[in-house]
Nucleic acid binder design. Structure first.
Lengths: 185, 185
DNA sequence: ACCTGAACACCGTTCAAGT
DNA sequence: ACCTGAACACCGTTCAAGT
């Protein structure tokens, strides 16, 4: 049976989850699918396009935000949920960062985030800029925790990151942003 | 005359400035220096160590912050200065992000930033977390602007980023953070 | 001490030719 | 329509051997 674009993307996600971006090469992916490397280029224009698709899959898995809570709470909840989903996937910050640069509004989760920023008190002119700030905070926090885990793995002298306190550090920054929104001039 | 570690790092910085990270390979760097690729490994353990040195050079060039202004102003001024310096250098966000993950307190500019966050009203417990937030905001903003410039270069349909409005978007996010600091609970 | 030559195990991408 | 085979132009890193 012929290969499909969906199959290529799904296997790429699987490879990323299991071994990280370093092992997500076009050649490795082709081997995993039992085809020649060139075959992939029938289904996907190039590696960058593939990675954008991979990011979309990761972001699509984030549960939609409940509609009954006040906006600042819902915003914080969604940001935490996105961070939690991404921190499980090796190099997720790099992959999503690339996708976000290419097409910022592609994923529903990120559009919801922008909307909640607005409802939490950002003026119309601030809205997009603050949404970007929150996304950067999420991706930065994910990358930082994963980098510390990697460093601890290589050098056993270093302490392994405690995911609870990493999450807490993230929420401190998030709280500052939300407070800043409320205290608009 | 023998090669020196400083010479290797300086040429790496030059290559990054002129052609970006894609052309900063160990082999390309060796060619530029007129030596065999293996020669570099006498002066530098591996590519990652080299990139950390490159980041340190970039950050060392940022002018120290004047001491006479109030902390929130000085903080904003320094953040803008760091962003401005890095946005000139292709892929600077990736390089500095890597270095920051490996050794967060290495560069004077970043230590100053953490100190000013404290003086601008962060409690002792918030201090480091908010400094991290500001660094992520800077690196995210730099990466975003450079990515848009790249996208516009590839696809001439897209608008080239206007550096003034990019800077303004950055300052909006920064202002939210500073306000959030002042409005501590 | 410092460097070369040569190798090892890889990359992303293209494209004529096959089915 | 979909894929193979083979190539092109690269990577980072190691290490015996040379000076």
């Amino acid at each position: 049976m012929a290969l499909s674009r969906e199959q290529v993307v799904a296997t790429a996600v699987d490879l990323l989850r299991r071994y990280g971006l370093g092992d997500l090469s076009m050649r490795r992916l082709a081997r995993e699918l039992g085809v020649a490397p060139g075959a992939l280029y029938w289904h996907v224009a190039n590696k960058q396009e593939l990675l954008v698709e991979v990011a979309d899959v990761l972001l699509a898995e984030i549960p939609p935000v409940p509609t009954d809570r006040p906006a600042p709470e819902a915003l914080a909840g969604l940001a935490v949920a996105i961070r939690e989903a991404l921190v499980q996937v090796p190099d997720a910050a790099d992959v999503v960062g690339l996708a976000y640069a290419v097409e910022p509004g592609a994923a529903r989760a990120l559009r919801d985030l922008a909307r909640l920023v607005h409802e939490a008190g950002a003026t119309a002119s601030e809205r997009d800029d603050v949404a970007v700030l929150v996304v950067h905070h999420i991706l930065g926090s994910v990358a930082a925790q994963q980098n510390r885990a990697l460093a601890a793995h290589i050098d056993p002298e270093l302490p392994a990151p405690d995911s609870t306190s990493e999450a807490k550090a993230f929420e401190v920054g998030l709280a500052v942003i939300v407070r800043g929104l409320g205290a608009a001039t």
